[in-house]
């Protein structure tokens, strides 16, 4: 691993750690003090700010990576992807935090709760759309596109497979319920994990 790569991963880990610590502090803080709705919402949303640092960090890394001497024309799709991803993430965080605090603070009807559930999931569609647009972008390097396409297929297949295994574990062996929304997290996690293996096949 090069020094540049090590620095990038350390900064990345730092941002995620900062998010976790601040979010934990927000939890402790709002539990102790009985704050008005807007303030406790703010207490939860502010700690997510470090997460958005991931976008300039990644852009800077891919831009200066000596292994990927991509021209400006090749960088454009990555920039577009980062912006789409950032906007989706921003709305996801805001809506999720607002929903959590609203459910906690107010007596809501089932219809409103259902509406909140759908609203919270909408930005996840935006994240999936951002990835799809990146893969379909004609300015993306064709080899990179092939790696991404294969990674999407492999991670989707593995996600379905694990979901099937867990489903039977729940039915047969009393395994704990797996929250369905986490399937998306598993899918994107696997998408990241399989990429180096897909890449290795072409060395």
């Amino acid at each position: 691993m090069t020094a540049r790569k090590r620095l990038f991963f350390m900064q990345l880990a730092g941002l995620i750690l900062a998010f976790l610590v601040l979010e934990w502090l927000a939890g402790v803080f709002t539990a102790r003090a009985s704050l008005p709705y807007a303030l406790s919402l703010l207490a939860y949303i502010l700690p997510t700010l470090p997460l958005f640092g991931i976008i300039p960090l990644s852009l800077n890394y891919t831009n200066n990576n000596p292994d990927l001497p991509l021209s400006a024309h090749r960088m454009a799709p990555v920039r577009r992807y980062m912006v789409r991803m950032g906007v989706s993430m921003f709305f996801y965080v805001i809506i999720l935090m607002a929903s959590i605090v609203a459910l906690d603070r107010f007596e809501l009807s089932v219809q409103i709760k259902a509406l909140l559930a759908v609203l919270t999931a909408l930005p996840i569609g935006g994240i999936i759309w951002a990835v799809s647009r990146l893969i379909a972008d004609p300015d993306v390097d064709e080899f990179e596109r092939m790696i991404m396409t294969r990674s999407v297929m492999a991670s989707a297949a593995l996600t379905f497979f694990f979901a099937a295994i867990w489903g039977f574990l729940e039915n047969f062996a009393e395994a704990p319920d797996f929250p369905l929304y986490l399937v998306v997290v598993v899918y994107f996690g696997l998408f990241g994990l399989v990429q180096p293996f897909v890449r290795r096949g072409f060395r």
Partner: peptide, 13 residues
């Protein structure tokens, strides 16, 4: 890779 406007990984593969 720069001449062809592709990634270095493409050339290697």
């Amino acid at each position: 890779a720069q001449h062809l406007d592709v990634s270095r990984q493409s050339i290697n593969a």
